[in-house]
């Protein structure tokens, strides 16, 4: 099988970006420049482009077409789009290289959530007959999941606060983070509920941002990157959309069927208790450094945060900090869809 590697990654700062529109262009142009500089590539070297974004979030039709301004589409390009996190765009790009239709592919994701009513927008990804008409907002729905786990003895509010505190402490070294710093568990637990049992620190901050990853085939990867992150496995699982009919606190095993645990794992958990669910489903124990970036709890740009997890995992290999890494992205309510990519140095 054709080998494929990540050879470049960049992400924008995440926050309420008054300088950026819902087209994503203002956030994308600088990070495209960064990955071109990392790899020595120009836009004309990219054989396939794929983006992840959402018109519901942007509040305008075909917002992903406007984002193409950031590419420069003359002469014509081969381009695709997913109405999902950019991690799924990366998956499509990976397949494109495997089929031999492209040697180099670029996946990007972007979202400007600060101008939208995000909690209501996300209600529209629920069942359109039985759930969405009630507008169950994303935080409330996550709270139902968190309580199920607490009352089943799977985790406590303190466990959840520990996830938040560790994420924020890790984010001090992450220039893209929206929140960072040392916090005490006691202080966190003294704060009010946003949706009992969730407090503000249990929920990812709302911010705007973008991320980009470049993939290359084996023939090209070594010339573009000193230490490419070779993709060894991709897995994708989707759970039932009927929230009341599935086990909300346990996922079927998500990771590769065998092999040692990765040195680094970047998990896309927009809520603290979801990181605990994901660690269990991936069988990640003590030796793996989980979310050294701080993860989605410190920066969760919609439709880019999952791609950024895969990118951060690859970056750990490209910079020599790790020999093996796992990136995870989620989409849909309550970890409904999960994409896992493992990578290693050669």
């Amino acid at each position: 099988m054709t080998e494929v590697a990540v050879v470049g990654f960049a992400q924008s700062p995440v926050g309420v970006r008054d300088d950026s529109t819902t087209s994503g262009v203002e956030m994308l142009v600088p990070i495209f420049g960064q990955v071109y500089a990392q790899t020595g590539l120009t836009r004309r070297d990219i054989g396939f482009w794929c983006s992840g974004s959402s018109d519901y979030l942007a509040g305008r039709a075909f917002s992903f077409v406007q984002a193409v301004d950031a590419i420069g589409a003359v002469p014509p390009i081969m381009e695709s789009h997913v109405e999902m996190d950019g991690a799924w765009a990366l998956y499509e790009a990976w397949v494109k290289i495997l089929t031999g239709e492209a040697d180099i592919a670029l996946a990007y994701g972007f979202g400007k959530a600060s101008g939208a009513e995000l909690r209501k927008v996300l209600a529209l990804q629920l069942d359109p007959y039985l759930l969405a008409p009630l507008w169950p907002d994303s935080v409330s729905v996550a709270a139902l999941q968190a309580r199920l786990g607490i009352e089943a003895g799977r985790w406590t509010e303190k466990d959840m606060a520990q996830v938040a505190a560790r994420s924020r402490a890790a984010a001090v070294a992450n220039p893209s983070a929206q929140v960072a710093g040392e916090v005490s568990i006691e202080d966190l637990l003294a704060r009010p509920y946003v949706a009992d049992p969730l407090r503000a620190h249990d929920c990812a901050p709302v911010g705007d941002g973008a991320a980009v990853v470049i993939l290359a085939s084996a023939e090209r990867a070594r010339e573009l990157c000193d230490r490419p992150a070779w993709i060894t496995w991709f897995g994708h699982r989707a759970e039932s959309a009927a929230l009341g009919a599935r086990d909300l606190v346990t996922l079927a095993p998500l990771g590769p069927p065998d092999g040692p645990p990765p040195d680094v794992a970047e998990l896309h958990a927009p809520f603290t208790h979801q990181e605990i669910i994901l660690r269990e489903a991936l069988g990640i124990g003590g030796t793996t450094d989980v979310n050294p970036s701080g993860g989605a709890l410190v920066a969760n740009p919609m439709f880019a945060a999952g791609l950024a997890r895969l990118g951060c995992a690859a970056q750990a290999i490209m910079t020599g900090r790790a020999d093996s890494a796992l990136g995870h992205a989620t989409s849909g309510p309550l970890l409904q869809q999960n994409l896992v990519c493992t990578m290693e140095a050669q």
């Binding site: 529109t21 101008g115 008409p133």
Partner: peptide, 18 residues
């Protein structure tokens, strides 16, 4: 049939060029 009214508010930001 079922009818679901959807109503969402957006605050659009003008880019520097706009």
């Amino acid at each position: 049939m079922t009818i679901t009214p959807v109503r969402l508010r957006y605050l659009h930001t003008a880019s520097p060029a706009e």
